[in-house]
Write a protein that binds this DNA or RNA. Structure first.
Lengths: 222, 222
DNA sequence: TGATCAGTCAATTGATATATTGAATCATGT
DNA sequence: ACATGATTCAATATATCAATTGACTGATCA
């Protein structure tokens, strides 16, 4: 009764495993989060992730061979991007499984990310509704270059660095909502803490730009 | 401007990578497909996958440490099962990425699985509607033990082995729909081919039991 | 044409993963 | 208590992966 799998089925599993192998490295996952913001050059993601250019290049090629990202040449530089939106779904379910089932992740969330709950995240439906009524100011705390590559429609860019150095003159009449790269990017957490310290009403958007974009909600470029 | 990720964020990526590492092996993916049918003992999945018991045990423990499966002891045996339904989603998006992006998978699908399209898969909505009207006979071609552990409500069990040996006396008035373990399990394909060779009207269900179950559609046990 | 910049390739080293083997548990029946 | 069956553990050899280094290629611009 031993229904040992036949050859073609085994080959398929080998291919699926190849995709999983490409995801099975913390640096590549970090590169994917960066690419989830939009197209980026090798040098850019190398600098943002703290990897050497050669190392980042090899990781990106690994991801490309697995069909997770694609690359195109533009002049001197090579620009990488996620292959399609299914990749965002894949990364999200990976995150969900880790979050729900791995004790270590729970510990990290409960510890370092303790403020998570106290910062009352707002959902996308509620944000859309309040944007329509104009009762909220939406800020994107990512660096300017990421903002310019694409952001939530109606958001204004206040990079976290500027916010902390009080460079932007923020005096909104309404409550502030901050967002960044996604649920595990800490920038929006920090922004909300900082704003509250200064006496503003501030909340965090539950998800980040990649989730918003992949949900088909309105975005802008530039 | 090098926004190198901070420590807690890096630790989270390490944890996500650990989950991905657990998926990054063809044998473990095969074990997961088997466990997607329901709870199974180490010995059972070892036999079904063609792995040695010790090897299967170690792979299963790897999956357990990653929070992808859980185990419980029942007498002499240890029964493993998927940790939750998010795992099914994760495996499906992994499959989708591989399917959409990897040339090798395309080749396998177009070659060995050539009959795929000619076998006109039926969707779950249409199947439900026709089951309600009674205009279809639904057969589950998985082995009896898998059928007994859970199957689509209203299905009858005709294991592929029996079907091929003409052991079951099939004389349905209606069209036959066959299903098995999922989109990459070949048993339903073979069953439909065989039935058509004998002159029956037969189609394949688009997805398999795990997808049906995880979609919350009606199932039965025993 | 040559200099420069962005990225890739190849070779090396150290670190991880995998399958096998045989011994060690742990619960059960005699 | 002892024997048995099911699973896990420990040790090993082989294979694969990751980061570094320096050389190489391709596109741009003086």
């Amino acid at each position: 009764m031993a229904s040992v799998p036949d050859l073609p089925t085994r080959l398929l599993f080998v291919q699926f495993a190849a995709v999983a192998k490409a995801l099975a490295n913390e640096h590549r996952l970090m590169l994917l989060q960066l690419l989830a913001q939009g197209e980026r050059s090798v040098e850019t993601v190398a600098e943002m992730s703290g990897l050497s250019v050669a190392n980042a290049s090899q990781h990106l090629q690994h991801l490309r061979r697995a069909g997770i990202v694609t690359a195109r040449r533009e002049g001197k530089r090579v620009l990488y991007r996620l292959a399609d939106d299914v990749v965002v779904t894949l990364l999200n379910s990976l995150r969900q499984v880790a979050e729900r089932n791995v004790a270590e992740v729970q510990r990290l969330l409960d510890g370092y990310f303790r403020e998570r709950d106290s910062l009352e995240p707002i959902g996308s439906e509620e944000l859309l509704e309040r944007m329509r009524r104009g009762t909220v100011t939406l800020i994107d705390v990512r660096p300017q270059e990421e903002f310019m590559a694409g952001h939530i429609a109606g958001a204004i860019n206040v990079p976290l660095e500027n916010l902390k150095r009080r460079k932007g003159k923020i005096a909104p009449r309404h409550e502030i909502v901050a967002y960044c790269r996604g649920p595990y990017c800490l920038m929006a957490y920090e922004a909300v803490s900082e704003l509250r310290r200064r006496g503003f009403k501030a909340r965090r958007l539950k998800d980040g730009y990649p989730e918003w974009k992949s949900a088909g909600l309105p975005v802008e470029i530039s």
